[in-house]
Design a protein around this nucleic acid. Sequence first.
DNA 1: CGCTATCTGAAATGAACACTCCAGTTGAGA
DNA 2: TCTCAACTGGAGTGTTCATTTCAGATAGCG
Lengths: 195, 195
Amino acid sequence: MSTAEQPRRADAVRNRRLALEAAKTLLVQSGVTITVEAIARQAGLGAATIVRAFGTKDALIDAAVTDLLDPLIQRAHQALTEPDPAAALRRFLLDLIDFQAAHWVMSEQLTHLQIPLTAERRSALHQALLGMIDRAREAGAIRTDIDPAVVTVMLGEVVYAIARSSATPPALAHDFVTVLADGLRPQSSTGPAGR
Amino acid sequence: MSTAEQPRRADAVRNRRLALEAAKTLLVQSGVTITVEAIARQAGLGAATIVRAFGTKDALIDAAVTDLLDPLIQRAHQALTEPDPAAALRRFLLDLIDFQAAHWVMSEQLTHLQIPLTAERRSALHQALLGMIDRAREAGAIRTDIDPAVVTVMLGEVVYAIARSSATPPALAHDFVTVLADGLRPQSSTGPAGR
DNA sequence: CGCTATCTGAAATGAACACTCCAGTTGAGA
DNA sequence: TCTCAACTGGAGTGTTCATTTCAGATAGCG
């Protein structure tokens, strides 16, 4: 393909890797404003070197976030093949919350950046989640009076939010998923519906 | 009190008001980076005038956001006195989502600002929400196996998230509150619990 | 080894902002 | 109407950054 990797000097390759690791480290830390300067310091390199290795700061961040996101995507694909769809969904939601709890600071940093790779990964996650919900729905584990697309948006956004919450104790995540799961289960009693 | 308003010239008062309105207008618009320059243009004033009227840009934004938040706080207090706690909570959640849907862009802008007044209002909202949940709980409308504080965090964050979702069709908000309400209701069947 | 294309990073550049200065304007009391 | 302190806003000032430049260092081939 067009991925024609022109040969690069060993030190350039090494420094590129260092820059990526440094960016990942900073992305996970809270409270830090991520500047090229800061990444350079963390990597023990000059700022110019870092920018040159990726073209722009945005491209560097994009690559770093993509890296961080990959394990999560793997888990998502895994969840899609597990036998019990409801359990898989539940487990994945908890994974998602864990991930966001560790990384929500990152999301804040990303707002004004041009990060196409990351956008792509996010969309992949969204697709996988949609798949999980479809499976759970077909298995009868999720009420059918709500559009699966709506459920997907709901869960995706909500997980982000819950992880974001200042405290984020594990108990919160667990309780939260419980409430969601109970609310999403087919409701036997349409209850005091009218209200 | 110490609110000793030293007399100010009529034009100064008018311009202060203009600046506040301009800031509110921009805060609600999406995609706009809010600079003092932009607010000044919107208000038809010079940038210097605006900064001087409030001391700092942050103070201006703080005042504007506070203004925008006030009606919502009023609704919250209102909800606390309605006869049916469950219905009041539900209605307020929908209000909250509506508000956030209209204003979430704003929240993004606020991340790096010094906005004590706004922080205070937010905390007031949180308190009110906690109150509503307590009332609904006492009325037996909310399951008791989950800490009310957790429920509060849950709802507060979640509402923010759901409003944030790109689409935000009203249907989404409605369905979402339904799912939450069903999930938060006392669960008769501990169900096929183990799972 | 020696040579040179590739790399490096300190310093320069330039853009975006919040905030300040000051010469000129204006509201409003006498 | 006159006067002047309070106001205004265009033109700075100082910062914070991403990105570029370029003189010097170095990987790695012959």
